[in-house]
Design a protein around this nucleic acid. Sequence first.
DNA 1: AGATGCAGTGCAACTCGTTGCATAGGTATG
DNA 2: CATACCTATGCAACGAGTTGCACTGCATCT
Lengths: 181, 181
Amino acid sequence: MALEHAILVSLTERAGSGYELARRFDRSIGYFWPATHQQIYRVLRRMDEAGWVTHQEIAQDGRPDKKVYEVSDAGREELTRWLAEPVEPAILRDGLGVKLRGASLGDTSAVLREVERHRAHHATRLEVYRGIQRRDFPKPDKLNGRELHQYLVLRGGIRAEESFVAWCDEVIQAMRSERTS
Amino acid sequence: MALEHAILVSLTERAGSGYELARRFDRSIGYFWPATHQQIYRVLRRMDEAGWVTHQEIAQDGRPDKKVYEVSDAGREELTRWLAEPVEPAILRDGLGVKLRGASLGDTSAVLREVERHRAHHATRLEVYRGIQRRDFPKPDKLNGRELHQYLVLRGGIRAEESFVAWCDEVIQAMRSERTS
DNA sequence: AGATGCAGTGCAACTCGTTGCATAGGTATG
DNA sequence: CATACCTATGCAACGAGTTGCACTGCATCT
């Protein structure tokens, strides 16, 4: 339901091809709404048919042609319509929780190693987000409008990853002290 | 991929019908791995065909017959196999982030109200989790094995919801002080 | 010379999850 | 008395997301 709207938001910020959008999703919006290039191409076509975007074919030399998409008036209307409408609250879905809950039915030390692996993963991601924060938003108090909103979204990512890392630490500590006791 | 394993974990704790599993998912495991009854019925049938579970038809009066499922040896093997294997780290996917990022293209005060709504939702959920914690795990230091793991999973839910609520508060505060400045 | 990676679009097949509906008797609520 | 909800299972259709593959051509690394 919302990939269309994530694309509309991104395209409103600036026009781009499917490929470029996929890159952008990898590096910013996709941290909060992941999507593959396949999905993006398919949805872009649908949006084109629905008249929410228009495209221009651009010939390039050395590289394949690209279709650069732009948001149409209908697309902007759809976006404002959607913005006024409620969205589902985020749902947590973490396989690590399932695993942890079943840990005593298998090798608990393997599960512990898995928690450590996830901790490392989330810590890395957290560092990436903090890097973006330092580079792009050194003075958060001065922000307004779109920039403020982008900053706040990033804050959500940072908080989520911080909370994951802290949880992993709690789990690791509890499981270790259980083994040694 | 993991619904099978979530069901195996739940059925290992105790046997049950598809319907009972759906209720259980609503009240415990499902907080970390949501599933509808439809999904559960379908997957249970697959698991039965694969030999991971067995079922017994139980006739009841006044109510429809039910099939009570139990984990087989093959199911237990599969579960231990899966426990030793890595799982994907959780991915954040929050439509509210998309909306916030596009807020300046529509009615920002509507988006603000939406954030407030999400805050209330996550706060309610947080209170539910904290209630479970108080009732089921009043002395967390004394826990071992399966109980410890269940507690730690619940801690993950609590941390996640705390982090959501705190994020919503940060967003609300920032958007309000922007409007008045 | 060969492998890998990037830019660019796309098809086909599949799994996963959601929604609406059907059936059926029992119990509670207004 | 009618409405609605609970237990209990399930089909059918759809939408969303994933995986694997195909084609082209340039640049870079080994």
